[in-house]
Nucleic acid binder design. Structure first.
Length: 352
DNA sequence: AACTCGTGGGT
DNA sequence: TACCCAAGAGT
């Protein structure tokens, strides 16, 4: 095996030649680095890039983000998923504005205390923005290191996390930790890819243990397997000529603090009549005509499959419900952050 | 420490 | 199709 210094040099050169040009690589401002790192958590660059640009456009500095409303921040985050990131981002912005006078903290211990900033993000910000020697360990780094050294300890085990963090720290180039960390991740993302990496043209194809032992497709090892839960949402669209009703999801559940049509959740695909009984919670069915029911569709989440359909009831006589329904003019619906199934329905209806 | 939180792309 | 995975964090 080549020594660590040689590996670092090879990686460094590879990065200089192959790195992608991205907006957050044009700056070391910790606000922009932080924003990009939170957006990119569990998210591909292709998916997050436009969100980054919209956020720095809407909130050019941390104070402006802190002064925004959570509803507005969530609206800008709509479609990106893992909405706790947006809520925590906003919360942390307020912390920085109020406790640090709007100046982004520069040491690891302060940064990692911010909501939504864990070990990975704290290491990324401190190394890239402040040139501090903290090694990042993300999915790319796990994959690259496990293959390079032929390590089959599960990356999602306690021992595995500890070992990979130690190895990443050993490999870290303390003279340029920011460049090194980004090189590790970029290499994992572009060269040492999850499926079918091009090992023939890899700069480490003579040092990589996994390639030598023909174990590329077996590394890294993951032990955890998630169990999928099925849920059934009957969305009730109550409409008048120019309005409808929305609710805010305030429980500790998926899509927390996003808006949606009032929903009747059932154990399975229930008969319409059964659901209609529940609708009396919202309004009186007898005053509604023209019932329109969509087919079932499915939204796949990490741990859940949400089966959903829309039951549209056109009201001839307005009867506001009893359960915190928000009466919304159709022309104002675009202001609300909504989950993907609702967004698609709104688009189909031509309301957004 | 296991579980939960979205969405989209690739095979 | 069904599965994997993606610049992880909070509880």
């Amino acid at each position: 095996m080549a020594d660590i210094e040689e590996i670092k040099g090879t990686l460094h050169s590879w990065y200089i030649q192959n790195k992608r040009h991205l907006p957050w690589r044009e700056t070391t401002d910790p606000y922009f680095i932080w924003l990009s790192e939170v957006i990119l958590q569990q998210t591909r660059i292709d998916q997050g890039l436009s969100y980054f640009n919209r956020f720095i456009d809407a909130y050019p500095n941390v104070k402006l983000l802190a002064d925004a409303s959570e509803d507005d921040v969530l609206k800008l985050w709509q479609g990106l998923g893992y909405y706790s990131r947006a809520r925590n981002l906003h919360h942390a912005a307020k912390t920085i504005a109020h406790e640090f006078e709007g100046i982004f903290p520069s040491d690891y211990k302060c940064i990692i205390k911010l909501k939504g900033v864990g070990e990975y993000t704290a290491a990324a910000i401190t190394s890239i923005s402040f040139n501090l020697p903290y090694a990042v360990v993300d999915g790319n780094v796990y994959r690259f290191i496990s293959r390079l050294f032929g390590i089959d300890i599960p990356i999602d085990s306690t021992n595995g996390k500890k070992l990979f963090k130690e190895l990443a720290s050993e490999m870290l180039d303390k003279k340029d930790p920011g460049l090194h960390n980004q090189a590790m991740m970029e290499f994992g993302a572009l060269q040492c890819t999850p499926q079918k990496p091009n090992c023939q043209e890899c700069v480490f194809n003579e040092t990589c243990m996994a390639l030598k032992e023909n174990k590329i497709d077996k590394l890294p090892v993951k032990q955890g397997k998630i169990k999928i839960k099925h849920r059934y949402f009957n969305y009730i669209i109550l409409t008048g000529k120019n309005h409808t009703y929305l609710q805010k999801r305030t429980k500790n559940d998926i899509w927390r603090n996003l808006f949606e049509f009032p929903v009747v959740e059932t154990e399975q695909k229930t008969e319409i009549d059964q659901v209609l009984k529940e609708i009396d919670r919202f309004t009186e069915v007898t005053n509604n005509t023209e019932l329109e029911v969509s087919t079932w569709q499915k939204q796949v989440l990490s741990h859940q499959h949400i089966h959903y359909r829309f039951i549209q009831l056109k009201q001839t006589e307005e009867k506001p419900g009893t359960e915190n329904l928000i009466r919304v003019d159709k022309k104002d619906i675009f202001k609300f952050a909504v989950p993907k199934p609702v967004e698609q329905k709104l688009t189909q209806l031509g309301w957004v």
